[in-house]
Simulated assay, not measured.
Amino acid sequence: MRIDIISVVPDLLTSPFSASILKRAIDKGIVEIHIHNLREYATDNYKSIDDYQFGGGAGMVMMIAPIDKCISDLKAERDYDEIIYMTPDGKTLNQGTSNELSLKENIMILCGHYKGVDQRVRDHFITREISIGDYVLSGGELGAAVLCDSIIRLIPGVLGNETSALTDSFQDNLLAPPVYTRPASYKDWDVPEVLLSGNFPKIEAWREEQAYERTKALRPDLLDD
């Protein structure tokens, strides 16, 4: 998979891709991450990428011309399955979306900034708009990093255990069951006996029951779906 990220402040994206699972995925050649500084596509000598909004109002707007040039240059090199815009008013990211995007080959992500982008960018270039929650950040970079992490960890070969991602919360609209490790007893707090039984069908049934009960208690809205 190749992911191209267009950003006004690319330095914000240095850290997320230089450690842990994302770095290993890059080092293994499973995924390529390319970060593009939008200012390099500015059309004036001042490297301007934003301007005042028509009609007045507070806040600057990302201009269409630099974005058009950047997207057009990238599309001239390859076809993209999705061109995603990170924005607070996009569709909220969920596990199903991450599952779907993990099957793509080439993805482009545009990080919003200021008051957002010229609406014509959204109308003519963007294929999908994604938010990571009902709140506003200074820019879309952190949201793009979250999106990339949620996608990349699902790609075969990224995690050490291929089945690990399949048992995460929100797969099948359920929260993950409780998990335990050694010691089996700590300060008189004991691990449920079923997990020590070696009876794997019984353990699996217990986990399914716990997942359902946790979801019912903490996120009943998931069961409605």
Rank of each mutant, 00 (worst) to 15 (best):
residue 196 L to A: 11
residue 24 R to G: 10
residue 124 H to T: 13
residue 23 K to P: 01
residue 184 A to R: 12
residue 59 G to N: 07
residue 128 R to A: 06
residue 135 Y to G: 03
residue 32 E to S: 13
residue 126 I to K: 06
residue 155 I to T: 11
residue 190 D to L: 14
residue 144 A to L: 07
residue 203 I to P: 01
residue 157 G to I: 11
residue 61 V to G: 07
residue 123 D to P: 00
residue 93 L to F: 13
residue 57 G to T: 10
residue 187 K to R: 15
residue 174 L to H: 02
residue 55 G to W: 06
residue 201 P to K: 07
residue 224 D to P: 00
residue 96 G to H: 04
residue 94 N to D: 15
residue 208 E to C: 09
residue 74 L to Y: 00
residue 115 K to T: 12
residue 97 T to L: 14
residue 175 L to F: 06
residue 168 D to E: 15
residue 163 T to L: 09
residue 2 R to H: 13
residue 63 M to R: 15
residue 98 S to Y: 04
residue 203 I to E: 05
residue 207 R to G: 00
residue 152 I to A: 04
residue 91 K to T: 14
residue 32 E to I: 06
residue 94 N to M: 02
residue 111 C to I: 10
residue 127 T to F: 13
residue 25 A to D: 01
residue 47 K to W: 05
residue 48 S to W: 04
residue 216 K to W: 06
residue 106 N to M: 10
residue 75 K to P: 00
residue 98 S to C: 13
residue 56 G to M: 04
residue 117 V to K: 12
residue 46 Y to E: 11
residue 136 V to L: 06
residue 111 C to L: 09
residue 196 L to H: 02
residue 190 D to A: 15
residue 173 N to W: 11
residue 89 D to T: 15
residue 180 Y to P: 02
residue 187 K to G: 08
residue 163 T to F: 08
residue 77 E to M: 12
residue 94 N to W: 02
residue 17 F to V: 03
residue 156 P to E: 06
residue 158 V to L: 09
residue 212 Y to R: 05
residue 39 R to Y: 02
residue 77 E to P: 00
residue 28 K to P: 03
residue 68 D to F: 13
residue 77 E to N: 05
residue 148 C to R: 05
residue 14 T to R: 07
residue 143 G to D: 03
residue 67 I to F: 01
residue 215 T to R: 11
residue 200 F to T: 15
residue 204 E to F: 06
residue 27 D to G: 01
residue 207 R to P: 02
residue 36 H to Y: 09
residue 37 N to H: 10
residue 111 C to K: 03
residue 59 G to S: 07
residue 111 C to A: 09
residue 51 D to M: 11
residue 217 A to Q: 14
residue 12 L to Y: 08
residue 211 A to I: 04
residue 64 I to V: 15
residue 225 D to H: 05
residue 125 F to K: 15
residue 73 D to G: 01
residue 100 E to F: 08
residue 161 N to C: 04
residue 38 L to T: 05
residue 219 R to K: 09
residue 51 D to Y: 11
residue 221 D to G: 01
residue 103 L to C: 13
residue 103 L to D: 14
residue 187 K to C: 11
residue 218 L to F: 02
residue 106 N to F: 15
residue 191 V to L: 08
residue 151 I to P: 00
residue 165 A to P: 05
residue 53 Q to Y: 04
residue 170 F to N: 01
residue 51 D to T: 14
residue 20 S to M: 05
residue 183 P to W: 13
residue 127 T to C: 07
residue 199 N to L: 06
residue 111 C to Q: 08
residue 8 V to W: 00
residue 10 P to Q: 05
residue 6 I to S: 02
residue 100 E to H: 07
residue 85 Y to V: 10
residue 124 H to A: 07
residue 67 I to Q: 05
residue 163 T to V: 08
residue 70 C to D: 00
residue 139 G to W: 02
residue 144 A to P: 08
residue 47 K to A: 12
residue 22 L to H: 01
residue 26 I to S: 06
residue 109 I to T: 12
residue 145 A to Q: 03
residue 103 L to A: 15
residue 116 G to Q: 12
residue 174 L to W: 06
residue 192 P to G: 14
residue 124 H to F: 15
residue 21 I to R: 04
residue 62 M to N: 11
residue 171 Q to V: 13
residue 14 T to C: 02
residue 46 Y to V: 00
residue 85 Y to E: 12
residue 206 W to V: 10
